[in-house]
Design a binder for these strands. Structure first.
Lengths: 346, 346
DNA sequence: CTGAAAGCGCTTACAG
DNA sequence: CTGAAAGCGCTTACAG
């Protein structure tokens, strides 16, 4: 009677608990728990009565409470730079797939390339006691995470390395990919090659610049510092950098774009430029083959990056405690036309 | 002494609790709670001792436990079709931004367009007691959600309507956008216009087809059923549909592509086609202006879709309990070239 | 096969 | 200003 009253007078927002189900079914709390979790040792008749009560009350187990008692939350956090960046879409999906296959939920957040925001978000995830973290770092100092990792929150960094902390890392071969790109342009006759990259504190930008320099040096070519521009990837900045390199008496005859956002703006600038200029971009993207000329790129396997990182994370959660690893995913040069344009006569 | 022992002998994976902090600081549990939550009524000296204990032990409040007691989880779920689809990137980010501004975390998951998977994921989120849900539905029957909504989980559907349930919905104007697209092609002289869309059970596909038919009828044009093809947006299927429409003695002279995935494949097919064919695509995408010809599209404002849905969700969480709303976000036709190609002489 | 008690780590409602 | 007790909704460890 009072059960029914409680059931129907329940105000909006209050849910029945196992205790309510137990009362209605006339059994103990533990018996309800057994039925809900499919544990053995319940007679069919008892089970049926409990099931009826569950249905009648619209009971759904509160996993937050369960989690508190069990210790593991069956959730992992993914912190990336921008949820809207198409480069991270496949990575995000790959991490989700792996999480799903391990029965874990995925909590997602963006750092917006702001170290403070990254830390705030990561620590909020730790406070929720996620089992593990996959982080595309914006910060270059992750000592703030040391106590969390020591306390058992598995952490894998992806796309960029961790700063001042020894942790698992999964990276693309930015250095090798950049070397390939620049060597490709040199092989097509270019001697004055510009590089427009992301902010220098970002590891991938730094590595790609290093690959650029190494390839130039290996070919015995000088690098004029006016050919190199690192900074924010906002269209205005990239546009102005490209315009500068393409002007003057000794303009660059080819551009190497440090990531997908730079490439997009470079393509726009070059479309309006009077002379043909070769272009190779880091990162592949949709329709790169349909632009005219089709865009030659160094493709990263973003899905593989995400999958590898997530698999490593769950291996840690399963108890693997060998030394932190640094894994490198190869890149692939895809010639499509823009990277094979010869130098314009000047 | 025993505090220190407990502190240092703590095995990997076990974290200090407020009780540990209280013991070490020589204060009561509630005092620790006050300090951690910045509540008033603690002398500076006591506060300092507690802070010291927190730092020494590496304490971080367990928000899972806090949540259990407080009722609200400060987290919302976003269920979409595919985390890697660039269309959903801006939507995802917009939802995250709104969540963040309300101090909530975002749990993300993909349905992979599978109704069973959607339901499984949504109910898992309900079991975690997310405060609210933003759902891009794959299913067409959401009665399974009624008990959860009644129990207080705010729910907003976005991009597609809820099925068999009365709930808040935020949609793009698919019908109007499709009408605009087809009217545009008709205005440029086309009479035989093909429509390739997503699976008919998807609401947006259905609405866009309706817009197509309405525009044709309004112009007094007949619709040959061979000009309409709905189905999966896999490249092979779209390619074969397009190829069929473009063959024969009376081929279509223009195509209306029902979403971004269809458009991409259509562009590829048309690039290899001997005669010029006009194309308007639903959804804008990066570099649409750099393909040759540049692609005329009906652009949706995905970010606004997400922002509107999330804002509505938090308004519900703040107590707004007026009748479920249906909000429509306008689309915008962007002429770029491909949609202004005149019909080829046949 | 079944259930009462204790406890997960916090907050709430009170009392001093 | 401070803290002991009860409780959030479950699971664990036991006892019957």
């Amino acid at each position: 009677m009072s059960d029914t009253a409680r059931g129907t007078s329940r105000r909006y927002g209050t849910r029945p608990t196992m205790k309510d189900v137990a009362a209605r079914a006339g059994v103990g709390l533990k018996t309800v728990s057994r039925v809900v979790n499919g544990e053995p040792g319940v007679t069919p008749d008892t089970e049926r009565r409990v099931q009826e009560a569950i249905t009648a009350l619209g009971f759904r187990r509160n996993d937050s409470a369960r989690i508190l008692r069990k210790g593991r939350t069956a959730s992992i956090g993914l912190v990336l730079e921008d949820l809207a960046d198409p480069f991270y879409g496949p990575l995000n999906r790959a991490v989700e797939e792996v999480a799903r296959s391990h029965g874990a939920l995925l909590i997602n957040g963006s750092s917006a390339e702001d170290p403070a925001r990254e830390q705030e978000l990561v620590l909020a995830l730790c406070a929720r006691r996620v089992d593990g973290l996959v982080i595309i770092p914006a910060a270059d100092d992750h000592r703030y995470l040391a106590p969390e990792i020591a306390a058992g929150i598995a952490t894998v960094f992806v796309d960029r390395p961790a700063g001042r902390i020894d942790a698992d890392v999964v990276l693309s071969d930015s250095f090798g990919g950049a070397q390939d790109a620049v060597a490709h342009l040199i092989a097509h006759g270019h001697r004055r090659i510009g590089f427009i990259g992301d902010q220098p504190r970002i590891h991938t930008a730094h590595e790609r610049l290093r690959g650029y320099r190494t390839a130039m040096v290996a070919a015995g070519l000088p690098v004029d510092e006016s050919w190199v521009s690192l900074g924010p990837t906002a269209p205005e900045r990239v546009r102005s950098a490209a315009t500068t390199m393409l002007a003057g008496p000794q303009p660059v005859t080819a551009l190497f774009a440090g990531n997908n956002r730079v490439t997009v703006t470079a393509v726009r600038v070059l479309a309006d430029h009077p002379r043909p200029v070769a272009l190779v971009g880091f990162d592949d993207f949709e329709l790169a083959d349909l632009v005219n000329p089709a865009i030659t790129v160094v493709a990263q396997d973003a899905a593989r990056l995400g999958r590898t990182a997530a698999q490593l994370l769950f291996r840690r959660l399963d108890g693997a405690d060998d030394a932190p690893r640094r894994m490198e995913i190869p890149t692939r040069l895809i010639p499509r036309g823009s990277g094979e344009i010869p130098p314009a006569e000047s």
